[in-house]
Design a protein around this nucleic acid. Sequence first.
DNA 1: GAGGCAGGGATTGTATACAATGCATCCGAT
DNA 2: ATCGGATGCATTGTATACAATCCCTGCCTC
Lengths: 230, 230
Amino acid sequence: MIGAFKSTNQRARVVAEGIATAIHEHRLAPGMKLIEDEVGEIYGVSRTIVRSALQSLSHEKLVEIEPNRGAFVARPSVRDAREVFEARALLEPRTAHSAATRTTPADIELLKRHIEEEHAALDAEEVGRALRLSGNFHIEIARIANQATIAAFIGQLVARSSLIIALYWRRRNALCESHAHHALLDALARNEADRAEELMTSHLVDLVSLLDLTEPPVEPTSLKEALGAE
Amino acid sequence: MIGAFKSTNQRARVVAEGIATAIHEHRLAPGMKLIEDEVGEIYGVSRTIVRSALQSLSHEKLVEIEPNRGAFVARPSVRDAREVFEARALLEPRTAHSAATRTTPADIELLKRHIEEEHAALDAEEVGRALRLSGNFHIEIARIANQATIAAFIGQLVARSSLIIALYWRRRNALCESHAHHALLDALARNEADRAEELMTSHLVDLVSLLDLTEPPVEPTSLKEALGAE
DNA sequence: GAGGCAGGGATTGTATACAATGCATCCGAT
DNA sequence: ATCGGATGCATTGTATACAATCCCTGCCTC
């Protein structure tokens, strides 16, 4: 949605976005193997396209490609998790600041609709969809800041965050976020840049505090994966 | 050098790094066309590998792939240039701060050697090589900060900066940088984090001030490119 | 001449064939 | 029974063949 790249080949893009969305919505769990033939069959394309898509996803660190072994949904380590949120803490507050100075009523409408959709998804028990929309809220703010380069970085970090949440989230309640997003929306609507920056900072701190980053490894997808690999 | 990724296929990596280095050293000019067959012949690989490499480079925005038209060395717009240095201003000073708190004598030795190599290259009139080494200095600092995720972002931004410099640099003197790098090295050696952060901030400001970002388009590589495309 | 259109060569997009590698299973030896 | 190695299947890595697209050139019309 955010990146209207024309660069990568159209068909590979469809496949990559399909897989990415599935990862964002936690339909594809970390560690899951992505067999080229299977994916190709699903999307009706040859392995050439699938490979291109998988390489693209591996560049965004949503997928890990192990030479001669195949592609797996990435399993960020505890260290990865810390790094991702460290990077977000560096980028997003200042970006929210910038965004607040430029937010238009149209932007506010869009963000409002995002939040509403998120609530609707939560009410419908579609946790995965709610999670993806929650991430999109952050990406939308980066877009408002009108810095495509930084927005692309944030987009990647948000995507990885989804995997991190899948692995290290303490509980199942994503509700807590709604309040923070509402407050951010308010600050943006009033063009209160400093407050938006502070809110984003504390929002990210809150997010990290909801992760359990103590256990070094992570719950394996299957015994086979746990014992067979690495 | 910085990314010892095992992810992408070995052969494609060699090709991608070869092209990337050539871009960093300004042997490949912005806008230049990269024909798959030609590249494949040079490296002794099939188009499959070349395509993989080009897609990888396009993800790093060193190459632009225009559907059905081919791959070209990227030509960052004035806006891209501003965005890249805006992102660097956001990431690098804080990263230098972090790095300064962790810099070891071994790191200092490495950085010193970097600077020396850069000087040697300049003395030998190898401007391209000096430029690449100058960029590596920044990447090395990010590495010292021990944040791989942020370091990867900075690496990408430094690489793009090389293209931006090729297009928008006012003069030919890269000498000015040496002083700033020396000062940074000193701050890191003494573990003076705040000073390192300030030095990095002003260094980046200096860099931008040496760019001429007034002219909307850029000097074309060839008449054909200038008149034929877009 | 200027503009438009058709043909041909060059280049990219995609699928597929074949080689290389890894993984599981089975067998035999100890 | 457990370990070691060999065999076969599943999957990935690479090259190549063919189709689609683009771009250049030359011709034709006005």
